[in-house]
Design a protein around this nucleic acid. Structure first.
Lengths: 129, 129
DNA sequence: CGTTGATATGTTATATCATAACATTTCGAT
DNA sequence: ATCGAAATGTTATGATATAACATATCAACG
């Protein structure tokens, strides 16, 4: 089910996990160059696997990636990202009511959902205080 | 409030409105070249204004744009896009319950939302039948 | 009018994000 | 040991987006 990570995948995941904020593929490349990774495809391939395994998420509105805060496996429901445009911090939630309403909406439309993206941009509690 | 559109803005909006599917900025550029628009910044500027006015939306997960199906002004609540990955069709909704839950979630976190992105990718009724 | 200031436009160049294509290596299963 | 699948390395290029600056348009004011 969850394949063990290869060297490159682990390096990219470590770089992502140790970052405070979402990282673009090229920012990650800079962080793993010292480990011998030299070109974008190597990073994108690792990210593809990490995202498929649920260990990382792509933030569409930033063209960047974050490590999944749950550390392993897939989340049960639609993942909500709250993204602070001031400090860059991202919080990740799953809300049952929200997930349920999205499922209902899809059903009403006879739409077969495959992947949902929900990103809230704004100011976090600390920055808007 | 709603400024009248300039020539370039109107050209880009027309190109977007007459398209069946989301259009990238470069696809739009191809569609308005005959009208004398020659370079990406001209398209991106027009799009920026159209999105600000609520006449168009950016689909983050596609890096593409659609004309707002309501034709004018801003939508009351979080806009939900259902995007068919088979035929490319996009439907746009606003759902009160969903919008309300997103507002509540933000409040719970003391997060000041500025912009929400909710995109559901999958197969539409026609394509999944 | 004619000037002025704000906004839009035109243009070039370049930054940033992402993948195609193909050669090589690694490694588990037989 | 060999074979095949998967991962990796590498080069090149495609696709998306914006910086920077020059020019033009146009409404408001004296």
């Amino acid at each position: 089910m969850a394949d063990p990570l290869t060297r490159n995948q682990q390096l990219v995941l470590d770089a992502l996990s140790s970052a405070e904020r979402p990282q673009t593929a090229y920012a990650l490349l800079d962080r793993v160059r010292a480990d011998g990774i030299k070109a974008p495809p190597q990073v994108y391939r690792a990210l593809e696997k990490l995202v498929a395994e649920g260990l990382a998420h792509r933030i569409e509105s930033l063209n960047a990636f974050v490590a999944c805060c749950h550390g392993h496996g897939h989340c049960a429901g639609t993942v909500v990202f709250m993204i602070c445009d001031d400090c860059g911090h991202v919080d990740e939630f799953v809300d049952a009511a929200l997930s349920q309403r999205i499922k209902e909406l899809s059903l009403e439309q006879n739409f077969q959902p495959n992947k949902e993206t929900l990103e809230i941009r704004g100011s976090c509690a600390a920055c808007s205080a």
